[in-house]
């Protein structure tokens, strides 16, 4: 019984599946040939829409809204780009060589050529996506991994100040345990031997460190694009980027 949530692993997986955000589309279609400005405008337009949906999504993860507001803010600020990137990989998993940013923005690596420094990130995204393809990532595993990224992102925060903070941090750890149980339960349904299940769990979790590395690269790249005035960032995206760059500096 899911460590205080009152949910079985199966029920928790179903809740997380139901929390999945809807598909998004470009607000304004992008014409070819792509330019640095047009592509960055499209990518940030999509990211901005997805961030709003990500907040709704997080609120539907069982137990998340019971955390202190400051922990909720902090968790999302730490992991938003990891979550956007994992979502991109999931959409692209059945399309080798392509990155499906949205149904109306499907790019191959060469199309990243027009944006300085983005091809290196595209290559890493494609490589991690093909690893997920090799592993035949299942939808249930994907949603558990995404929730784990959210709950595991708090490692850079300051020490808790109040009893409420201490309690909230404890809740995050218990939630993380519940989602881990849910992922273990999902893997257990694959019919693999117990040893193979452990190896699959390790393979999936090891990819999270690649995603963190990728998102750090992405934050660095977006900051450069902002500094060079290649793209005007919308309010929420700007705020999320600033939260990252001010923490790391």
């Amino acid at each position: 019984e899911g460590r205080g949530l009152g949910l079985s692993p199966e029920q928790l997986v179903n809740c997380i599946l139901e929390a999945e955000p809807p598909q998004i589309y470009l607000r304004e279609p992008i014409n070819k040939p792509y330019t640095e400005a047009s592509m960055m405008t499209s990518l940030t337009n999509l990211a901005d829409q997805e961030l709003v949906l990500m907040i709704s999504w997080a609120k539907k993860i069982p137990g998340f809204v019971e955390l202190t507001l400051s922990d909720q803010v902090h968790l999302l600020e730490c992991c938003w780009l990891d979550i956007l990137m994992l979502g991109l990989m999931w959409r692209s998993v059945d399309h080798p060589g392509k990155l499906i940013f949205s149904p109306d923005l499907r790019l191959n690596r060469e199309e990243g050529n027009c944006v300085e420094g983005i091809m290196e990130i595209f290559d890493m995204l494609l490589a991690t996506t093909s690893r997920f393809r090799e592993l035949k990532l299942q939808r249930e595993e994907y949603v558990c991994l995404k929730a784990m990224i959210l709950l595991n992102s708090n490692n850079c925060s300051s020490l808790p100040q109040t009893p409420e903070d201490v309690e909230s941090r404890g809740k995050v750890l218990r939630l993380l345990d519940s989602v881990t149980d849910a992922l273990v339960w999902t893997i257990s349904r694959t019919g693999l031997s117990s040893q193979q299940q452990s190896i699959r769990l390790a393979h999936l979790l090891m990819l999270l460190s690649h995603i963190r590395h990728l998102s750090n690269k992405g934050i660095e790249h977006l900051s450069t694009m902002k500094r060079k005035n290649v793209v005007l960032l919308y309010d929420l995206l700007l705020e999320m980027l600033d939260a990252n760059t001010s923490q790391s500096s």
């Binding site: 949906l53 803010v73 999302l76």
Partner: peptide, 24 residues
Amino acid sequence: TSLKEKHKILHRLLQNSSSPVDLA
């Protein structure tokens, strides 16, 4: 919670009980 935190859009979207999509 600091005043700066309270002015965050993220803070506001999290606090609002209705769907953030409506707010956006």
